[in-house]
Simulated assay, not measured.
Amino acid sequence: MILKEYPDREFMMVSLADRIASELRQALAQGPATLSVPGGTTPGPVFDILSDLDLDWANVSVLLNDERWVGEDSPRSNTRLLRERLLRKRAASARLVPLHAPVPSPEEALEALSAQVEAALPISVLLLGMGADMHTASLFPGADRLEEALAPEAPALMALRAEAAGEPRITLTARVLRDAMHCHVLITGEEKRAALERAETLTDAEAPIRIVLKNATIHWAP
């Protein structure tokens, strides 16, 4: 694990956006690239910067780490946030790999969504977040199928449910996250810094963020 500390969040967001753009350019020099990103408000400033950078966005597939099973009209939709903050300006030509469909449960759409995800793999650049409970993507401690999602033979995409998650979730599995060519984890504040340190003493099931720590660069600001 490589830990990069920044004096403030603004500097971190600019530096991280520049790093992601550089790694995407390297990947694009070899062909199409895939960028996988988290939902939530924390990475929003990174998305704002990336959206206006001069990249070959038409050859970039953008894939969420996970999605709540809600429509894009919901303020809790990660896809909605992605459209508002990243898939605009120059990045509007990127291809969104969907993680939601207008059906009642994620299981009903899992096969079709999985096929599109598999076609976009491996991930060229992966950006993850982490909760204070040490979950990443929708791999929550205590989730109903967490053990399956952490297994080396897991499918690329799974539907999981956890008390802490609220809605049913659809998420990339540990296998896919580990296989990313470049991996970054974005965290802020003392609580998450302490959680990250605690994760190193726990099991993967207790602290799912552990699945990427060996290969990740952690970006932290107060």
Rank of each mutant, 00 (worst) to 15 (best):
M1H: 14
M1F: 12
M1G: 14
E5V: 04
F11E: 15
V14S: 12
D18L: 13
R19E: 14
S22V: 06
E23P: 05
R25T: 14
A27D: 14
L28A: 09
L28D: 10
A29F: 01
T34L: 04
L35I: 00
V37T: 11
P38S: 06
G40V: 02
P43A: 03
D48I: 05
D52G: 14
L53I: 07
L53C: 07
W57G: 11
W57F: 08
A58V: 09
V60G: 13
S61H: 14
V62L: 11
V62K: 11
D66N: 11
R68N: 12
W69D: 12
G71T: 04
G71Y: 03
S74A: 05
R76K: 08
N78K: 00
T79L: 08
R80E: 04
L81V: 09
R83C: 12
E84F: 06
E84D: 15
L87Y: 03
R90I: 02
A91T: 01
A92F: 05
R95G: 07
R95Y: 03
V97M: 05
V97P: 11
V97E: 06
L99F: 04
H100D: 09
A101Q: 13
P102F: 03
P102T: 04
S105L: 13
E107F: 00
E111Y: 03
A112V: 06
L113M: 14
L113Q: 11
S114P: 01
A115V: 07
I123Q: 07
G129D: 02
D133F: 00
D133P: 08
H135T: 08
T136M: 03
S138P: 08
S138Q: 07
P141S: 12
G142H: 11
G142M: 08
G142Y: 06
D144I: 10
R145A: 11
L146A: 08
E153S: 15
A159G: 10
A159H: 08
R161G: 13
A162R: 12
A162H: 13
A162G: 14
A162F: 10
A164E: 14
A165Y: 03
R169Y: 01
R169S: 04
T171H: 04
L172Q: 09
V176F: 01
R178L: 02
D179V: 04
D179I: 02
A180M: 10
C183V: 15
C183T: 15
H184T: 08
L186T: 12
I187L: 05
R193N: 10
A195S: 15
E200H: 12
T203D: 13
D204T: 09
E206C: 09
V212H: 00
K214A: 15
K214S: 15
H219R: 05
W220E: 09
P222I: 00
